[in-house]
Amino acid sequence: MDRLAVDGLVTEYAVAVDDGDWATYRRLFTADGRADYRGAGGIEGDAGQVADWLAASLAPFAMRQHLIVNRRVRFEILEQDTGDTARVQADYVNPMRLADRDSGSTAPDLVCGGRYAFGLLRTQDGWRLREVVVEEKWRRLPERRAAPVLG
């Protein structure tokens, strides 16, 4: 059951980011929870600071589809109790489309991928994120087409 709950929390994280649901994003973390997006060109800070930064950074993108895959879950020991903490390492692929793009196109303007490291803690309210670290491994921007030659 814990494995399912931890997996569900990681999915809730991805959906909150994709939907821009920053209140839910904040609630997924422990009171002292932190996120580190420096490995993807972002910031490190508490969940509230990072939620504000994500909201501003992702605002230009009308479509975000965070796919978190290859999840490896490990339960750890906290104060002699096995299973109250967990680590999840997972890969991601994230296509995004700009809001001001021609409405006839559904293709993403940017696609990136990398790896997450999640640290989780079992609380009275269930599993919560204590730490999220993002390491972007690659990024693809759309190919630029050459301007037509006139003349």
Rank of each mutant, 00 (worst) to 15 (best):
G48R: 08
A62I: 00
D7Y: 07
A99D: 13
L9H: 06
R128D: 06
S57R: 12
Q49L: 08
G113T: 14
E44M: 14
S103N: 06
L28R: 02
D91G: 15
D52K: 02
T24G: 10
A31G: 12
Y92A: 14
D19Q: 15
R145Q: 04
V73L: 09
Q80T: 12
V132L: 09
R64W: 06
R97Q: 07
G114I: 07
E131F: 15
E131M: 15
A51I: 09
V88P: 00
R34K: 13
R130K: 11
G8R: 09
E79C: 03
R26S: 05
R64P: 07
T82W: 15
Q89C: 05
R97C: 10
A62E: 14
D91L: 13
R38K: 13
L110E: 12
E143A: 10
T106V: 11
R115N: 04
L28D: 00
R115K: 13
Y37D: 07
G39Y: 03
R64H: 10
R130C: 04
D84S: 12
D18L: 01
A99E: 09
L150V: 07
L54T: 09
G41L: 11
A14M: 13
R145A: 12
V111L: 06
P142S: 12
G151F: 12
V133Q: 14
S103Y: 05
Q124V: 07
R130A: 15
E76H: 13
R140H: 14
A14R: 05
I43S: 01
R71N: 01
T82R: 13
I43P: 02
A99I: 01
Y13W: 14
V134D: 08
D125W: 00
Q124C: 03
V73Y: 05
G33C: 01
D21Y: 04
E131S: 15
L78F: 12
F61P: 08
D81K: 15
G42K: 02
R34I: 12
L129W: 02
N94A: 15
A147M: 05
T11E: 13
F61C: 07
E135N: 15
W22Q: 03
T123E: 10
R128T: 08
N70R: 11
L121F: 09
P108D: 01
W53H: 11
W53M: 04
Q89K: 09
R140W: 06
V50F: 08
V111N: 03
M96C: 10
A14H: 02
R3H: 10
D100E: 14
W22H: 00
W138K: 10
R38P: 11
R64A: 10
R101E: 15
T11P: 00
M1N: 08
V132K: 04
R26M: 07
C112V: 13
P142L: 10
E44G: 09
V69H: 11
K137G: 11
A117V: 14
Y13D: 00
V6Q: 03
Y13P: 01
R3N: 02
